[in-house]
Design a protein around this nucleic acid. Structure first.
Lengths: 344, 344
DNA sequence: CTGAAAGCGCTAACAT
DNA sequence: ATGTTAGCGCTTTCAG
């Protein structure tokens, strides 16, 4: 690597001390306006950039945020990531990003690397493996170091930190209520997320909606998928052995794939069967019929989480210990063609 | 941040010097086996991790790769990214990632930040703004620093570095040839990518396929889209004012959206109109009819580019100047329902 | 085999 | 208003 210009070089050029240059560049009031101007001008035209490693060695302020995401091929997380990137960039932060690939081991490994001062804050959505195992020691230890964490979407009560989540309970509650209002009586729920807290919350929202409307829950209509390969068989069985006139899919693919299966079995959508899916990505808008979806506003979640983290990082310095907060974002139901119209 | 254990702490504990500990941990032959074992054991059990900033200040080896991607919401780039992440992780490299958002200004800014020694290598796919402007100074300057660059997918001849691309010409050539073989005579091409080199290559492949099969090119069937808002109007005009029996869409959305428009105009797919699209994401498999696609093997591109970069980084040290290479990956045509069967 | 010392580039007391 | 100095944590000669 070609040697790049340092404070020393500038100091030599002006025949002043290194600290003078440092202060000038940091716009200190100590330095005369004239000198500051000259030094800054010279620095700019010589394309001076402080060495980030040297700076971080001194200050515990490296303007870098660690991001851990379970799976970037998931459109929701890609949306969140784009929100994170936007806000980080606006505030002059870099991102070190890792994909945990839904694995506890990889998540732990990643966190350990970041822990040694590589980042001044962490944004994380828990991997499925982590939630399943219930092992949060790596995160607790990270938080103990005093580096702020903001969890988003997939969070746990067992780690004390700020959180940004969607109202999973209400999202499912509203979706189920919508199905009921449009005339569905036998509503199934398909959950590939039962290892995750968000999956459990959504299930509760579904059950509560049924209850409030006087519909008894039917265990045969509650399908938990733990292995992707079993999806087709389970849904096929659901649709052939039971009377079903509504389906709530807890993530993007469960709704879409269930719809494909139902159509292949001769169901008319939405006349015979209404479908709503969580996550409003590209897919639900492109299939036909277009699928009514619970929108999770992924980009906004990313933006909010990053704002909170940066605020926490910058306040941390001033030692004003603020209480941890959990921001719960509303979902919205985007009504399309896979559900019947409301009948007043 | 809680103070984490340093070489000094270990040295104090064993009453030896810091340099002894450093050497022991680096497995130097200078240190006695016994001492090394004790020190290593102590370090491990106290969870010692070298401070990455301090280390990098000394050595120009930071095991960090910069990644610049035009748009993470694009499924192809998400795939590439997952390939990059996998290989980087396997080799113990961290990723600093940035999204250029198709903007030259943002790309420049990003590169400048990374330039000052933050990363020991760069993976980049050019933003549309950059290709359009033809301004590659930021990349040339980056390369001049001696930090290796590997460009993928969207590359330019004007910067000397390693490249990993797909065979865009042949991908389009084969797709067009397939349309011709299945009986299409009036094949249109829809290109929202004409600002990009890959778009131009694909157009050439299309034209060459027509020529080789004795079909004269028709300028009315060559649609270049420079503003997304105009897409619908242009395609609608294409389909109403001309006889068209085949469409080649140069990226995912152009094929899908064109198909929607054609269907709304009463075209039967593939009987009246055959469609092939570049990029094999989720969408082409989920719409109906499912769309025949040119698969670009995004994850593989990411893996290959990262392998090459790491190899370059590690060889750089040994100063063995190897020639820059361009690896051109084959595309493959995934045949689905939007094209007619081959008639033998 | 082990240690002392210098220095990477920068910041921040503490002089002057 | 400017300079001196010490030191962040680590590696690396060079001496013992």
């Amino acid at each position: 690597m070609k040697r790049s210009i340092t404070l020393k070089d500038i100091a030599l050029h002006f025949n002043v001390s290194i600290s003078t240059v440092s202060k000038a560049l940091n716009d200190s009031h100590d330095i005369s306006i004239a000198l500051k101007a000259k030094i800054k001008e010279y620095a700019r035209s010589n394309n001076y950039r402080p060495n980030p490693y040297a700076r971080n060695l001194r200050k515990k302020d490296n303007r870098t945020i660690g991001v851990v995401i379970p799976n970037i091929l998931n459109y929701f997380f890609a949306q969140v990531f784009s929100g994170i990137e936007k806000v980080a960039n606006e505030n002059g932060y870099n991102l070190i990003s890792c994909i945990s690939n839904e694995s506890l081991a990889k998540e732990k490994n990643t966190i350990e690397i970041l822990e040694r001062g590589l980042v001044s804050g962490l944004l994380i959505s828990l991997s499925e493996g982590t939630e399943k195992s219930g092992d949060y020691e790596h995160l607790k230890s990270f938080a103990d170091n005093g580096i702020p964490i903001v969890m988003f979407d997939r969070v746990t009560d067992l780690v004390a930190c700020d959180k940004v989540i969607i109202d999973d309970f209400n999202g499912a509650f509203e979706a189920t209520t919508h199905l009921i209002r449009t005339g569905c009586k036998n509503i199934a729920i398909i959950s590939p997320l039962d290892n995750l807290n968000i999956g459990k919350q959504r299930l509760k929202g579904y059950l509560t909606a049924l209850e409030k409307n006087g519909l008894p829950p039917n265990p045969n209509l509650i399908i938990k998928i733990f292995e992707e390969e079993l999806f087709e068989a389970e849904v096929r069985a659901l649709l052939t052995r039971n009377r079903v006139d509504g389906i709530l899919g807890l993530e993007e693919f469960s709704a879409i794939n269930a719809m494909k299966i139902a159509m292949s079995l001769g169901y008319e959508i939405p006349e015979d069967l209404s479908i709503i899916g969580f996550t409003n990505g590209q897919l639900p808008q492109y299939v036909s019929p277009r699928i009514t979806s619970v929108s999770q506003h992924g980009k906004f979640i990313g933006e909010q989480a990053t704002h909170k983290l940066i605020q926490r990082i910058e306040n941390n310095k001033e030692d004003s210990m603020e209480e941890f907060s959990t921001q719960k974002l509303k979902t919205s139901l985007v009504i399309r063609e896979s559900t019947k119209p409301l009948n007043f």
